[in-house]
Amino acid sequence: MKLLFAVSDRDLLNSYSKLLELDGIDVTRAFDGTQVVMRTAAEKFDIAVISDSLPRVELKELLRLLYDEDIPTIVITEKRVTSDTLCRAELACSYLPLPFLPDELRKAIRLLNDKKQTDNTFTAGDARVDIKQFSMNGIRVTNEEIDILKAVTEELPFSVRHESVYISALNRKLERLHKKARIKYIINKGYRLVCDNG
């Protein structure tokens, strides 16, 4: 797997690049936005991990570039991830707030890579979810949101950290798409995708 790892803090960059290399991943390093642009132009990556505070190029532009290159992206952020963050059209496939453990980064990379390999789509209510493209009726959905949508559609349990943030964001996205389905909690059953009128 070829991975672009871009953070401005040298220690973080070196440590995690090394760690991921020890895991057998081919890591390309970048410490500012310009380098991300250059590396992306020069090479094809499977996944990108970038910080939301990279200097020189705005995050939005970088995410657009990576989206156009069809590279699923994990954003490392110092900020709290809220449903607002997820609803903004920032095109990230996953957010990883600092501080995180190496296993959390590994898991995020693995899940994104798995989704990238699949051609599956599924229907959540009357919305169509494209797993590979991380989209629901053309709207970007994150890795965690896809997992939740799939679980609630198939009535399976799921384990996502801060699931309320993702559920709240998903409900807002469903509303934006004018869909009647909403994710609600049913006692003794868990979260289910139900019609808004019950």
Binding site: D9, D11, L12, S15, Y16, K18, L19, L22, E78, L98, P99, F100, L101, P102
Partner: peptide, 12 residues
């Protein structure tokens, strides 16, 4: 940030 780095370094 330091904690995240220490986490990684310890594993390395």
């Amino acid at each position: 940030l330091p904690l995240t780095v220490i986490n990684a370094n310890t594993e390395i």
